[in-house]
Amino acid sequence: MAPLAQDWTYAEWSAVYNALSFGIAGMGSATIFFWLQLPNVTKNYRTALTITGIVTLIATYHYFRIFNSWVAAFNVGLGVNGAYEVTVSGTPFNDAYRYVDWLLTVPLLLVELILVMKLPAKETVCLAWTLGIASAVMVALGYPGEIQDDLSVRWFWWACAMVPFVYVVGTLVVGLGAATAKQPEGVVDLVSAARYLTVVSWLTYPFVYIVKNIGLAGSTATMYEQIGYSAADVTAKAVFGVLIWAIANAKSRLEEEGKLRA
């Protein structure tokens, strides 16, 4: 991992500190909510909702690790002029936790969407494997460029990661269109919202990735990178998870009313 820049202001450090804290709070509270809701959905959707909670639990753990690493990487205190000053402590900031998190959670995010749609068993297995593997490859290809300062290397790995990225996004937008149309009335809009929220939140990641490729550097680039990834994570996991719960809840209600085959 590349050493942190030396030119940090207290405002920049604090902005990242608060973004990471927000990630912990958002993911942690979402986990509690999803698992408390398990008894309120039928058995057909409990696996999807359980996975939703696992995703946010894994993210909560990694945000704790990122947060602690961030705090340890700096010395913060009052300077001679009475204002807070921030200096690098020399302890490395381990941002690799993000990629470990994504490697575990990104495939699961797609699996929970596929499960809650309740597609035919063969189609469910096929989509879960193909999208899960493609998303894991996407994350693995992105990491080598993330830890490099050489722009040509960063662009190369970014382009490589975009290949499976485009495949996954294309499947969400086009490939699942017909399956979405077959969802029961009152659920179609929720499933569509979940698909497109995934696409929109995922589009944030490649743009944040190239922050350092387009001229930004030092503490400013790192600040935007950390805040951007944190906002995208909360949207893609906690907010997306709420939509998964809403779909499971709506379908469970229809099953109980006899309007949907169990």
Results as ranks from 00 to 15, higher is better:
Thr87Gly: 07
Met138Glu: 15
Asp233Asn: 15
Glu85Ser: 10
Val191Gly: 01
Ser135Lys: 10
Tyr63Trp: 12
Ile32Cys: 10
Lys251Val: 00
Ile210Ser: 09
Val163Asp: 05
Val76Phe: 06
Leu216Thr: 02
Ser89Ile: 11
Ala217Leu: 02
Met117Trp: 00
Asp101Ser: 12
Pro120Val: 04
Tyr143Pro: 04
Ser135His: 09
Ala232Pro: 04
Ala83Glu: 15
Thr56Leu: 09
Leu38Tyr: 06
Gly258Gln: 06
Asp149Cys: 01
Phe64Arg: 11
Ala231Asp: 05
Leu216Arg: 06
Thr130Cys: 07
Arg98Ala: 14
Pro3Trp: 03
Thr9Asn: 02
Val174Ala: 07
Trp202Val: 12
Ala250Cys: 00
Ala193Met: 04
Leu103Glu: 09
Ser230Tyr: 02
Asn68Gln: 13
Gly186Thr: 02
Ala246Asn: 03
Ala181Gly: 02
Val169Ile: 15
Val211Ile: 14
Leu172Ala: 05
Ala238Met: 14
Ala48Thr: 01
Trp157Gly: 03
Ala15Ser: 14
Thr87Cys: 06
Ala248Lys: 03
Ala30Glu: 13
Gly90Trp: 03
Phe33Ala: 15
Glu225Gln: 11
Tyr63Cys: 09
Phe240Cys: 03
Thr105Ser: 11
Gly90Ser: 04
Leu20Val: 04
Leu20Asn: 05
Gly186Gln: 03
Val106Ala: 13
Tyr45Cys: 04
Ala262Trp: 00
Gly79Val: 10
Asp7Gly: 01
Ala73Phe: 05
Trp70Lys: 14
Ala30Cys: 13
Ala217Gln: 07
Arg261Asp: 07
Ile247Lys: 00
Ile244Met: 01
Leu131Phe: 04
Leu57His: 10
Ala83Lys: 14
Ala73Val: 11
Arg253Val: 03
Lys237Val: 08
Phe156Gln: 14
Thr171Tyr: 07
Arg253Gly: 02
Phe165Ala: 13
Val139Arg: 09
Leu113Phe: 01
Val166Asp: 12
Pro120Ile: 02
Leu172Gly: 05
Asp150Lys: 11
Phe74Leu: 12
Thr198Phe: 09
Gly82Ser: 08
Asp95Ser: 15
Thr171Pro: 01
Ala25Thr: 12
Val166Ala: 15
Cys160Trp: 11
Gly79Tyr: 10
Gly23Trp: 06
Ile147Lys: 15
Val106Gln: 12
Val174Asp: 04
Ala5Gly: 03
Leu260Cys: 02
Asn75Met: 10
Val137Gly: 08
Trp13Cys: 06
Arg65Lys: 15
Ser230Phe: 01
Leu216Trp: 06
